[in-house]
Amino acid sequence: MAEGRRVGRGRNDRDRLENPDRPGNSNRPENSKRTRFRRSNERRNREEDRAVAPVVGKALEAGIVVLYISLLGAVLYGGLVPDYRTAAGAEVGERVLSQSAQRVQQAVPAATGRVAARTEVSLPATIRGRGYEVRVEGRTLVLDHPRDGVGGRTRLALPETVDSVEGEWSSRDPAFVAVRGDAEGLAVVLESGEPT
């Protein structure tokens, strides 16, 4: 080297001093123990990341399935199922009225004369999960239910010998049709409770 020339540190020398851990900036050879350890750690971290990815993916899939099922349940039980249950309850109510009317009409004898009869009528204990009542208005049976959309009325086809129809049934108690009278006229009474 010439004496008049100054030998200074270049950019590569400065970078080597500031970042000695960076590959290629060390005075040590690339195959040093420290470099090999760092590279094996980086490789291990990448492998661990690869091992975690399937687990995270499956957990996300399970979370999406649970979210879908809970949303579906909320939609069904919030709107569709109660509407269906009300419609089914209304049908059961119509059937109860129809069968009750038949039982009342069958309890009245065709022949006139002295009559004292009591016939049991089978009623379901609940309609749409609630108790109810069946009562008489004139010659019409009316089903009273606490839920809107469940209930109804049906006209009784009774002979002219029947003077009066009255009473009510509660679904909580046994139900009976009592027919009393003579040749002058019959009285039909809906009774609830144990037979006397």
Score class of each variant (00 low, 15 high):
149 G>D: 06
37 F>C: 02
76 L>K: 03
122 S>R: 14
137 E>A: 14
151 G>R: 09
181 G>M: 03
125 A>F: 02
118 R>S: 13
69 I>D: 07
162 V>D: 01
83 D>C: 04
73 G>N: 10
161 T>C: 01
130 R>K: 12
131 G>Q: 10
69 I>S: 07
86 T>I: 15
96 V>N: 04
57 G>R: 15
155 R>P: 04
91 E>D: 12
104 V>P: 02
41 N>F: 11
160 E>R: 12
16 R>D: 15
102 Q>L: 13
89 G>M: 10
67 L>K: 06
68 Y>R: 09
40 S>D: 12
124 P>F: 06
94 E>I: 00
42 E>F: 06
68 Y>G: 03
175 A>Q: 08
32 S>P: 05
9 R>I: 00
20 P>E: 12
127 I>W: 05
123 L>G: 02
83 D>S: 14
89 G>Y: 06
137 E>T: 08
136 V>C: 03
22 R>G: 01
5 R>N: 09
153 R>H: 05
147 R>H: 06
122 S>G: 05
67 L>M: 10
51 A>M: 11
90 A>F: 01
68 Y>N: 05
73 G>T: 02
57 G>S: 15
110 A>N: 11
60 L>P: 00
172 R>Y: 02
36 R>D: 05
157 A>D: 15
5 R>G: 10
24 G>Q: 08
67 L>D: 10
63 G>K: 04
183 A>T: 07
105 Q>L: 03
121 V>A: 10
19 N>W: 14
49 D>F: 01
125 A>L: 10
91 E>L: 10
36 R>G: 08
143 L>F: 08
136 V>H: 03
72 L>P: 04
116 A>W: 03
42 E>G: 07
186 L>A: 02
182 D>G: 15
162 V>F: 01
27 N>Q: 07
134 V>R: 02
126 T>R: 13
131 G>M: 02
69 I>L: 15
142 V>P: 08
104 V>K: 10
55 V>Q: 11
74 A>F: 12
18 E>Y: 01
5 R>C: 05
195 P>V: 09
46 R>F: 02
101 A>T: 04
167 G>E: 05
92 V>W: 02
109 P>D: 08
121 V>S: 06
26 S>L: 05
187 A>V: 13
166 E>M: 11
76 L>E: 09
125 A>I: 03
139 R>G: 07
55 V>A: 10
166 E>D: 14
33 K>N: 12
28 R>I: 01
57 G>N: 14
32 S>L: 02
7 V>A: 11
102 Q>W: 06
105 Q>H: 06
19 N>H: 15
192 S>Y: 06
187 A>T: 14
122 S>T: 15
121 V>T: 06
118 R>C: 03
109 P>C: 09
39 R>V: 00
175 A>D: 08
